[in-house]
Design a protein around this nucleic acid. Structure first.
Length: 384
DNA sequence: TCTGGGGTCCTAGGACCC
DNA sequence: TCTGGGGTCCTAGGACCC
């Protein structure tokens, strides 16, 4: 029988920091921009479980976090450190199975063939103990033949727990949980479901809701299948090569000054292009996104007609798109800009970068080779 | 309390082609 | 004079995830 052990690291960024700062164990610790450094625009990236007792959560504005827990210890984010730790975690997981699918920096699905839930639970114990003893990193693990169910189970096991859901117990396990615990159900979908009188996963199964769920399209069908204990899961479990890369920046102060914004957008366009190039990709389209001071967003994108590389096409097109967006805003509400973003999409491998790409995929993105059947001749025109 | 930075997927209309 | 269906690409916006 095939099992999914869904491994989710507990308070990952904080746990990485505590490896270097053992003296902080047991204290409310937060990774994020320090709100005591004056005017700071930012959110909590990770909070220790001690900090969570004060109500702190990931994605909470740091000003609110500071108000809730003035005694918290703040540590600035060190992403290279967390990337290194994530690689250590994956290396451990690969020792237990060749089928490890990372889903984010702190989550991965480990697939194994085992005769029963007993053995699956035993393997979960060993993985958890190894991560703790060798890396000093706590993890929670959910176990089910279904990846979605395993992930939900992980959340109920946190922190430092293990939850096994044998296949015949799936529907009963899910029934009392709120619909919001389903991955893909956010505030909007939750509100729609509440409007239908559906609060728990179990209520998704009742007869009269089936027709109403059609309002949600195919997603409604998937919700119903999950609730009944047999989720639709694609057999294609590989994570492919990246589709886009972006650089975003929230400005220190909202502004409508075009010179300032043009400088910023050029920096972002350069940054994104350099990143794409260093990963061995070219890009074929570009999107500039603006978040206004009222948090509404607009975006404008353009196809470049063919795969490009280097910073020049990115910088030039980003400047044009920004100008167009600002021009239109001036004739309207003329709001100030809070955030600028440049996204490069339509990524394709650069010529002669097969080796680098292979290394990239092995580093965590297991899956089909992106170059299969896609010879990339210089100057060859893209499909279309 | 005043909200980051990085991604993915879906929908929907219009252009364009056969 | 009035009438198709299917497919792909482009673009904008939105929901969601960590």
């Amino acid at each position: 029988m095939r099992w999914c052990l869904y491994v989710d690291m507990d308070a990952f960024y904080v746990s990485c920091e505590l490896r270097d700062r053992g003296d902080l164990r047991g204290l409310p610790v937060v990774v994020g921009p320090d709100p005591r450094q004056g005017h700071v625009r930012g959110v909590v990236l990770s909070a220790s479980y001690e900090a969570r007792r004060f109500g702190l959560r990931s994605a909470m504005p740091v000003s609110r976090a500071h108000a809730l827990c003035p005694a918290a210890v703040w540590i600035p984010a060190d992403f290279p450190k967390y990337e290194r730790a994530a690689r250590e975690v994956r290396a451990v997981l690969f020792r237990f199975s060749p089928d490890v699918l990372p889903f984010s920096i702190d989550e991965a699905a480990v697939w194994v063939d085992l005769p029963s839930a007993i053995e699956a639970r035993d393997l979960g114990d060993r993985i958890q103990a190894t991560l703790h003893s060798e890396l000093q990193l706590p993890a929670s693990i959910g176990i089910s033949p279904y990846r979605t169910v395993a992930k939900i189970a992980t959340d109920t096991a946190k922190p430092a727990g293990i939850r096994v859901v044998p296949p015949n117990e799936t529907a009963d396990f899910l029934a009392p949980l709120p619909v919001r615990s389903i991955p893909g159900v956010g505030p909007k979908t939750e509100a729609v479901l509440q409007g239908l009188g559906i609060e728990t996963i179990g209520q998704l199964r009742t007869g009269n809701s089936t027709s109403q769920l059609r309002r949600l399209g195919t997603f409604g069908e998937e919700l119903r299948a999950l609730a009944s204990g047999s989720p639709h899961e694609s057999t294609e479990l590989d994570v492919g090569p990246p589709k886009s890369r972006s650089s975003d920046r929230t400005l220190p102060e909202d502004t409508r000054d075009e010179a300032t914004l043009a400088d910023a957008v050029r920096d972002l366009a350069r940054e994104a292009a350099v990143g794409v190039q260093s990963e061995g990709f070219r890009y074929e389209n570009l999107t500039v996104r603006i978040r206004w001071e009222d948090f509404q967003q607009v975006q404008r994108g353009r196809s470049l007609g063919a795969a490009r590389e280097g910073t020049e096409p990115s910088v030039a097109e980003a400047a044009r798109l920004l100008h167009e967006l600002l021009q239109e805003e001036r004739t309207g509400r003329n709001r100030r800009v809070r955030l600028l973003s440049v996204r490069l999409g339509g990524l394709s491998p650069r010529v002669g970068t097969q080796r680098r790409l292979d290394r990239y995929l092995r580093a965590g993105r297991r899956g089909r080779a992106p170059l299969d059947g896609a010879p990339d001749e210089p100057g060859a025109s893209p499909k279309r």
